[in-house]
Amino acid sequence: MVFYAYVKNVADNWSYRYVITFASREVADEWWRAVSTSAVTSFVNSVQRINAQYYTHNPSLANATETLVTAGVATQFLGKVFFTLENDIGGRGLSIIPSPDQFTDHISGNSFFIRSKVAPYDYWYYPSSNATNAVYISRTERTRFTVSRVNSDTSGTVIIGSDNIAITLTTVNLSVNVNATTGQVILSPAPLSGLTFSALLSNFIVGPSLVENGENVKELLYTENGEQWELV
């Protein structure tokens, strides 16, 4: 589904205002990663992300629209992103972009609940009394996890699908891992090696129902072709 954002000129209140149309939310975050890490410093200094649907730029340094046609910036997104120039102010209108009903910005180092996109009442849950260290699915309880890029000095950056991540309890230094024999999701002192953000959103599946410490829960399993999950 297409995703929209504004970009505004930081030097004045009337010129070089655009609506950006991205092929998807994921493309928006990947475009921003390319721009913000580009070796072309004029774009790094010009284009700033205020939030997922609002950017600023300084056209005297570099115009955000040129990211798609300037070598070394974000030319790989030419067919996935386009800019629409807005009217200047003075009584003329500004396009109102649609905003998702619920929106979570995927910022490294922030904490989230993790729930099913198909059944949004199913949440990842880690009971405080848990002999097996297993993570379960619950419809009555939920546990908050910190999701972080594993690269150093990346706290506060936007996470994209190809990033290696660690999913850690917010209260104890235990991270999501997988039992190699059963595929059951567990917590351990060492995070699951090679886990990417895209895998978090697609490589886990709800398993059989069971009772854990008197609570009705379901197993959470890791698989190559899983269900869709989201951070909230």
Rank of each mutant, 00 (worst) to 15 (best):
Y6R: 06
Y6H: 05
K8N: 15
K8V: 11
V10T: 14
W14R: 10
Y18S: 08
Y18G: 02
V19G: 04
T21H: 07
F22P: 00
E26W: 06
E30F: 04
E30M: 08
W32D: 03
S38H: 06
A39C: 12
V40C: 10
V40W: 03
T41H: 09
T41P: 04
T41L: 15
F43T: 03
Q48K: 13
Q48W: 09
N51W: 11
A52V: 13
Q53Y: 10
Y54G: 12
Y54N: 15
Y55E: 03
H57N: 08
N58H: 11
T67S: 09
T70Q: 05
T70M: 06
F77I: 09
L78W: 07
G79F: 09
K80H: 06
L85I: 05
E86F: 02
D88R: 13
G90S: 12
R92Q: 11
L94N: 13
S95Q: 15
I96M: 13
I97G: 01
I97A: 01
P98C: 04
P100M: 07
D101N: 07
T104M: 04
D105K: 08
H106F: 12
I107S: 00
S108K: 00
N110R: 09
S111A: 13
F112H: 02
R115I: 07
V118I: 06
V118W: 13
P120R: 08
P120Y: 06
Y121K: 09
D122T: 14
Y123F: 15
Y125W: 10
Y125Q: 01
Y126N: 02
Y126R: 03
S129Y: 07
N130Y: 04
T132C: 09
V135G: 01
R139H: 14
R139K: 13
E141P: 08
R142A: 14
T143S: 07
T143F: 01
R144W: 05
R144S: 15
V147A: 03
V150M: 15
G156A: 08
T157N: 06
T157W: 02
T157H: 05
V158E: 03
I159A: 02
G161I: 03
I165P: 00
I167F: 00
I167D: 01
T168A: 11
T168V: 09
V172F: 15
L174C: 15
L174P: 01
S175N: 03
V176T: 04
V178E: 01
A180R: 06
T181K: 13
T182H: 04
V185R: 01
L187M: 11
P189D: 14
P189W: 12
P191Q: 08
P191D: 05
S193G: 10
S193N: 11
L195G: 00
A199C: 10
S202Q: 10
N203W: 04
F204Q: 03
G207P: 04
L210F: 13
V211S: 10
E212H: 10
N213A: 12
G214V: 07
G214A: 12
N216K: 14
K218S: 11
L221P: 02
L221V: 13
L221H: 05
Y222I: 04
T223H: 12
E230R: 12
E230C: 11
V232Y: 07
